[in-house]
Amino acid sequence: MNWSDQQTPDNLPDALIEPFLDGALTPEERDRVLAAASRDADFAAQLVLARSIREALRSMPSAVAPADLVPSVMGEVRRDRWRQFVRQLQGRLRMLTTVDFRPVLATATLVAVIVAGALLGRPAPTVSPEAEAALAQIKWTLALVSEVTERSTDHIRRDVLEPHVLGHIRSAAHDVFDDSRPGPVVN
């Protein structure tokens, strides 16, 4: 008989025995367990047995696990998962190689080969001599336009702004803020 299938008096489940021994029950549950043990000798015997097993286990010398135990167990777990993955992959590949999927597989392979070939065999971009010459002349033209614009801006600054605008502003500002001028005479 499975222990978990056993029902204690008052429909107390066996599952309460372990928490009772651990002291993890609520006061009400603990009272129910004790009441059931006082009424039912079998249940009381179960409690005694469980307590003695627990004490026997506690009194056994504890073995120290070898240092490589955890790594080796984890390694085994990883190997197991890898084997599982490979098996799944094999299963899917087997499915692809069935008659139904063969045309799809052949097309995909062909496309992959073509794409890889195009990528690997693609020549480096080349520029025709005509395009290179045209580009050189275009750069020259842009440089010319840029130079003209900048030189013109210099002219405007030097020949127009400086003498006709900035010069006047400076002169006016000088007149206003110059401290060396005699101030109004205060008697």
């Binding site: 750069k139 020259w140 842009l142 440089a143 010319l144 336009v145 840029s146 130079e147 614009t149 900048e150």
Partner: peptide, 12 residues
């Protein structure tokens, strides 16, 4: 034009 032209100006 101004920005690119300045870049190509050296020697051009």
């Amino acid at each position: 034009i101004g920005r690119l032209g300045r870049r190509f100006r050296i020697g051009a």
